[in-house]
Simulated scan of single mutants.
Amino acid sequence: MNITGISEQWVAAQTKQKGDSKCIPWKNLKDLILRHPDTKKKVDVFALSIYDLVVFPKALGHVDEVVTDLFDRLDKRVTPVPPILVETFRSLKAYRRAGEGRFIGCAQFLLEWFHSHFWKVDKVSYRVFSENYSPLKEIVAIPRRDDISGEKWMAILQNLQEDDIELRAPWMLPNEILYRCGNFNWVPLLGIWGAVSYAPLLVLR
């Protein structure tokens, strides 16, 4: 209701149960975008759809209620970065455990995470965050090579040395790295559909 500006009755009528999630079909939101009288609301609903269908995909062709809640909090300066990282890890773990299927997540974000943490692969130095600098804007402006095969990536990852890896993106301001929780050498990261353990010390090892 906050995002669409439409009545509670309309939202309730569009909401469907899809597996273990409550969702609104993308088709219904597309129709709303085309006929909504408020231009800002049109843009908000369109942005929500991209956010859910691309960044946090779960039910194909549907916008998840949980993602809608997170999207609604973005204007309150809630950062989406930890949930993106968590859900990427969860998807990769499920993919590896099943031994088949497809990666559910934003491959572009995952690729940028690779490039930022394994920074010596491209021999690129990054500037520090500032009001006028955003690494994601820089990424969009730089054409990425798409001719690196899976075998090449495997060779890169297998030959990484300890000093080739950063435990934080190099554009972040220097500070302490959280790498353990109590007596455990891992950190629980909370996502929008659950939690996952992140072990920075394993990256170094």
Rank of each mutant, 00 (worst) to 15 (best):
G61C: 03
E100H: 15
A155V: 09
A59S: 11
F56L: 07
W193A: 01
G19L: 09
D75C: 03
T4R: 05
F118A: 10
V203M: 11
Y133R: 09
W10S: 10
I3G: 02
P82E: 04
H36P: 02
V45L: 10
M154N: 10
L85H: 07
K137L: 13
K22I: 00
L201Q: 12
K41F: 03
V86M: 02
V67L: 04
V196Q: 01
C23G: 04
Q108M: 04
L32N: 08
P200I: 06
D122P: 00
L190C: 04
V81K: 01
N28Y: 05
E138R: 12
A98Y: 06
N175G: 15
R180V: 01
F89T: 02
K123H: 12
W171N: 07
I84M: 14
R168V: 15
K22V: 00
P188N: 07
V67N: 01
Q17T: 13
D164N: 10
L136N: 09
E112T: 02
W119L: 09
V140P: 01
G194M: 08
H117D: 00
I156W: 12
S130R: 07
S21G: 01
R96Q: 15
T15N: 07
P174D: 13
N185L: 11
K30P: 00
N185P: 08
A141S: 13
R102G: 02
D72S: 11
A98D: 15
N175H: 15
Y51F: 15
Q14V: 11
L167A: 11
A13F: 01
